[in-house]
C-alpha cells in the first residue's frame, strides 16, 4: 500500500502515463484499488473469494448512492453534509408511516415517496444556499442539525424491528447466491441494481443534458456561467434537490438491507462519502468529476474500511489506517492536479 506514492511520484515514471492520469483521474483511483487488492491478497490469500466480492459490493451500495448526490453538488461548486440526516429522516418517518398506517404499501410506491421526501429537503437546502448567499457548507451543517433534531424530537427514537413486508423482501432479494467451500452462503443483493440505475441517471444528467453542462460551468466559475446565461438559482435548486432525492432512496435501501430502522443510523458518514468522491477525481472546489471515478472512489473507501479485520489489524488501529490511506491518496491527487 505504502509504495504507491513513491512509485507514482518518481520522476522516472513515463510522462505519458502521468499525462493520461491527468486527463483521466479515475485511472489513478483504479490503480490505487489494484495496489490495495494486491496488498491485501499478499497479507491474506483467501481474499479472492466470491463472497468477498459480494460483501464489498453490498457494502458499497448505500455509500455509492450518497456519493452520486455529493458528486453533483461538488461539481456545481457546492458541498452538502446534510444528506445523511435527510436519509435518516426519510427512512425512519417513511418506515413508521408504512408500518403504522399502510402496512401493505408496495415498494414501487415507497421508493418514489422516499425520493420525493428527500428531494423536498434538498430543494430547501438549495433555496437557503441561494437566498442566504451563505457558504453551502455552513447552510447544510445547519440543516443537518435541524433535520436530525426534528427527527429525534418529533418522529421517534425507538428501533423498528418489524419492517413492512415489501421492504423486508426488497432487502432479502438476491441476484446471485453462492455457497463457499466452508458452507458459508453469500448473496449479491438486488439493491445493487438501485445503485446501477442511480449511477446511470447521474451520468446521463452530467454528460448528456444542458443541466449537466450548466452544473460544471457554475462549478468552474459561477460568474462566467451566469454571464453565459445559466440560471444559478435553478442549478442550485437542482443539485441540492438531486442530492436530497438520492439521500431519500439511499435511506430506504439502508433500512431494507439492514432489516431495521434506527433513527440514530447513518450519522457521521458524511465525511467518508465526500472523501470517496474526492478520491474518485472530483475537485473539492467544483467544476469536475465523473460518475465512473466516483464509483471507483467509493469502492476504494469500502475496500480499505472492509478489509482491515481481514488483514489482521486490531480495532483500535483501524481508523488510523483509513485516515492514513485517505491522506496519502489525497496528497497524490493534489500533486497531480497541480501539475
Amino acid at each position: 500500500m505504502t509504495d504507491v506514492p513513491a512509485s507514482a511520484a518518481t520522476p522516472g515514471l513515463p510522462a505519458r502515463l502521468w499525462d493520461l492520469m491527468g486527463r483521466r483521474p479515475e485511472l489513478f483511483t483504479l490503480a490505487l484499488i489494484v495496489v490495495t487488492v494486491i496488498g491485501v491478497a499478499i497479507a491474506n490469500p483467501n481474499f479472492f473469494a466470491m463472497n468477498n466480492v459480494f460483501d464489498i459490493l453490498r457494502a458499497s451500495v448505500v455509500r455509492g448512492i450518497f456519493a452520486m448526490g455529493v458528486l453533483v453538488v461538488l461539481a456545481a461548486g457546492g458541498i452538502d453534509v446534510s444528506f445523511t440526516a435527510i436519509a435518516a429522516f426519510v427512512m425512519y418517518a417513511l418506515t413508521m408511516l408504512v408500518t403504522n398506517i399502510f402496512p401493505g404499501m408496495p415498494l414501487w410506491v415507497i421508493l418514489p415517496l422516499a425520493a420525493l421526501g428527500g428531494a423536498v429537503f434538498g430543494v430547501i437546502n438549495g433555496l437557503l444556499v441561494h437566498s442566504l448567499r451563505a457558504p453551502s457548507l455552513i447552510v447544510t451543517i445547519g440543516t443537518q442539525y435541524i433535520i436530525r433534531s426534528a427527527l429525534l424530537t418529533f418522529v421517534g427514537t425507538a428501533l423498528f424491528m418489524n419492517l413492512p413486508a415489501s421492504m423486508e423482501a426488497f432487502g432479502k432479494a438476491s441476484l446471485i447466491t453462492w455457497t463457499g467451500g466452508t458452507g458459508v452462503i453469500s448473496t449479491l443483493p438486488a439493491t445493487v441494481l438501485v445503485l446501477v440505475v442511480v449511477a446511470f441517471a447521474t451520468w446521463f444528467i452530467l454528460e448528456r443534458t444542458l443541466m449537466g453542462r450548466a452544473i460544471f460551468a457554475s462549478g468552474g466559475n459561477p460568474g462566467i456561467a451566469e454571464r453565459l446565461g445559466f440560471n444559478l438559482f435553478h442549478i442550485r435548486l437542482f443539485v441540492f434537490g438531486w442530492a436530497g432525492l438520492l439521500a431519500g432512496i439511499a435511506g430506504i435501501v439502508h433500512v431494507a438491507s439492514n432489516r431495521l430502522a434506527n433513527p440514530f443510523d447513518l450519522a457521521g458518514m458524511e465525511l467518508e462519502i465526500i472523501a470517496a468522491v474526492v478520491l474518485g477525481g472530483a475537485r473539492i472546489t467544483g467544476g469536475s468529476g465523473t460518475v465512473i471515478g466516483t464509483l471507483l472512489g467509493v469502492l476504494l473507501i469500502t475496500l480499505v474500511s472492509n478489509v482491515l479485520v481481514f488483514v489482521g489489524i486490531p480495532s483500535t488501529l483501524q481508523l488510523a489506517i483509513v485516515g492514513i490511506f485517505i491522506l496519502i491518496a489525497g496528497t497524490i491527487f493534489a500533486l497531480r492536479q497541480r501539475n
Partner: peptide, 14 residues
C-alpha cells in the same frame, strides 16, 4: 447494527 453486521461478516471471512 449495520456496522456490527459488516464487522461480523468480515470476521466470519477472516
Amino acid at each position: 447494527a449495520n456496522k456490527a453486521y459488516d464487522k461480523a461478516k468480515e470476521i466470519l471471512r477472516a
